[in-house]
Design a binder for these strands. Structure first.
Lengths: 230, 230
DNA sequence: GACTGCCATGTTACATGTTACATATAAGGG
DNA sequence: CCCTTATATGTAACATGTAACATGGCAGTC
């Protein structure tokens, strides 16, 4: 009878996690301005739930760095300074490299297969002119590095940054088709380098890929002097 | 007038963070059994606060993996399986190595200086026979890798594991003076290898250091078949 | 006109009440 | 005797109430 465990239907998700997910996706999709303030009251009204689940969701998103909760003052969408983005990029470079090494050691075929599937989705979105779809496929491509690495802590560590990275990606690539095309070819080359286990080239491509993001952010974030930080 | 920032007095800490810190330290110090259950009611009575701050503290400790919150069933001290500890060790090896590289690039003198201070504290605790003090100094030694690495995300990533690592360390070294002496000499050698920038030796020593932990855990965790996991 | 302190307003932090769930145990049916 | 089904109890999830705190504007003073 313990087989029934496997087919136990998933619980109608808790309010807290629903709010967390909806809010996270909204931030990542660029539905808010960076630094924008949200009160618990306001959000609980929007979602039609009480303040408790909203509060817990904000706390969770604060861990991911997507929200800054200032005690007694309110909650705000994160607003990274250029230095913050540099930190994020440095972290990403280290984390993805290490995760790729683990993934190629543990499940090389499943890993490279998933990368191909992701580049396929990116190609489709690119050809269809689907901005949001392209961004999500890009995020999915990179998530694979961690899905197959076989270490939950490495995975969790990336999740700390994933939301912020994805949000910045949205802001950066949303208005720029040329960026997307460059980005697409880089992803393909990265997947190839991995398949060939050409680590030097992989490292080089990743540096370039992340570096290009950094340059793009600098050009967008610099003029308005968004400042922010903490 | 902006000098006054420096003397702004620290806020009387929020209840939530006080509960979080007290509870975390209690778990790390081994005041609970692994897998032990705690109800929100019980904890709120113990700390003399309402359930809200307790609930938020449990949520925060869940992020660190020190507590497992099972929906509608209760909260439990984490109970790692051997595989969990292996994952933790693998992560630690990767994270500390990368952090050490960053720290030696950014602030080599401050970093190695702090390591020396930490080994000093370890020596004192060892000679004084102060178990708990030794464990804390050990934890402080490793924390330095991240304090000086100059990347908050790398730091945050380690915090995801730090509590669990420290707890396991407590369980492991508390009853074993020989372990502590071995451990101490390893820490000294690790600090030396770093100062000499001898990365191969550093890597080797770290593997051995973490590997010894792993063997110790296996011998302690195996017989009672603590199982647990998730 | 610059400075000080008061007060109105918006916001959380925390307390407490209510509901619904998970689990164990015991009663009932084969 | 085993299996099913009711029921009791402990627990978290969520809703709501209360009070303290942060902040900005405004009046009063020098």
């Amino acid at each position: 009878m313990r087989d029934s465990d496997r087919l136990r239907l998933e619980h109608p998700k808790a309010l807290t996690s629903m709010v967390t997910e909806r809010l996270r996706q909204a931030i990542i999709d660029g539905d808010f301005q960076l630094g924008e303030s949200m009160s618990e009251d306001q959000l609980s009204a929007v979602f039609g739930v009480s303040r408790s689940p909203v509060r817990e969701a904000l706390k969770a998103l604060e861990f991911e760095g997507l929200v800054e909760v200032r005690p007694k003052r309110g909650s705000f969408i994160f607003a990274p300074s250029i230095e913050d983005v540099e930190e994020l990029c440095e972290f990403r470079l280290i984390a993805e490299t290490q995760a790729a090494i683990l993934s190629m050691r543990r499940a090389p075929d499943a890993f490279t297969g998933a990368l191909d599937k992701a580049t396929g989705a990116m190609r489709n979105a690119l050809e269809a002119g689907d901005d949001r779809g392209y961004g999500r496929a890009d995020t999915a491509f990179h998530k694979n590095f961690f899905t197959f690495c076989g270490n939950r802590l490495v995975q969790d560590a990336y999740q700390l940054a994933e939301g912020r990275i994805a949000t910045i990606r949205t802001i950066l690539t949303a208005p720029n088709k040329e960026q997307r095309e460059l980005s697409f070819s880089e992803h393909c080359m990265i997947a190839d380098a991995l398949r060939e286990r050409n680590w030097d080239r992989f490292q080089e491509l990743m540096s370039e890929h992340v570096g290009r993001t950094m340059r793009g952010v600098r050009s967008i974030l610099s003029p308005p002097s968004a400042g922010g930080s903490r």
